[in-house]
Design a protein around this nucleic acid. Structure first.
Lengths: 129, 129
DNA sequence: CCTTGACTTCGAGCGCGCTCTAATTCCTAT
DNA sequence: ATAGGAATTAGAGCGCGCTCGAAGTCAAGG
């Protein structure tokens, strides 16, 4: 199979989407089963075909996952998005809550980094003597 | 049991150490079994008695865990520390490697935070119209 | 003496997030 | 026509980091 195959029906194959997103094909299907992704097109063969919009959504999912949002919570967000216009306040609230969590995470990690750096300095001191 | 009991033998009980460290008593015992902690004193009853040094070490462990270092790697570091003087270079190397990982983590999370903030701005815009 | 409760060990169990297997089907190329 | 490779599903399995349960010991208080 050629990379970046031009699919018979339009859109990327699951292998292409995996390459593009950095996820595995297993994970892509898992995310779909888990309700994080919905409405991916199918070719006449039944094979998934990912659109640009799907890829953008995947990026969002990866961003949320990479910042520690649990699958269940991403599903909640995904449900809101799929439900369409009218629930923007709720989406915003969810994102704001997540932002707060990420910020907290960030300052915590910064503190821990400082701790590690102090330890490193100590060892450097020991080795310099 | 009174909080911060003055133990018959000196040192904190496991419950006190749990309170002080923020870990559960289960986790403290688990960490010991896993080789992250060694040489905790025992009272004549056989109960653990944690010293100030033990608490400081616990803080280090928590810092490493909180920044995503796997148990196995912390064990490796703990083994070096327990082995005593002479392996400071190796400890330093381990910490430097971890520092690099934490820094990378930090910039990644910062990027993701920016992403979330852009999305929030978008929703705020939608809701302001 | 007996209860209460904090501790002990050992080993099983759990939740999460994947990750993989098996059995099939479908497309493409020779 | 057929072989090979990529997709499909449902469901099992895994690795990590705890978390808990069972059964027992020990010390203090009523």
């Amino acid at each position: 199979m050629e990379p970046e195959t031009v699919a018979p029906d339009t859109g990327l194959t699951i292998a292409d989407a995996a390459r593009a997103s950095g996820l595995s094909v297993h994970t892509l299907r898992y995310y779909e089963r888990a309700g994080l992704i919905g409405g991916v097109d199918r070719a006449s063969s039944g094979h998934r075909r990912y659109s640009e919009a799907d890829l953008a959504w995947l990026e969002t999912i990866c961003c949320l996952r990479a910042t520690g949002m649990p699958i269940a919570r991403i599903r909640r967000y995904a449900e809101l998005v799929r439900a369409g216009a009218g629930n923007e306040r709720e989406r915003l609230a969810l994102l704001e809550e997540h932002r707060a969590a990420v910020r907290a995470q960030l300052t915590e990690v910064q503190g821990h980094l400082a701790f590690v750096e102090r330890k490193i300095t100590t060892y450097e001191g020991i080795l310099d003597e």
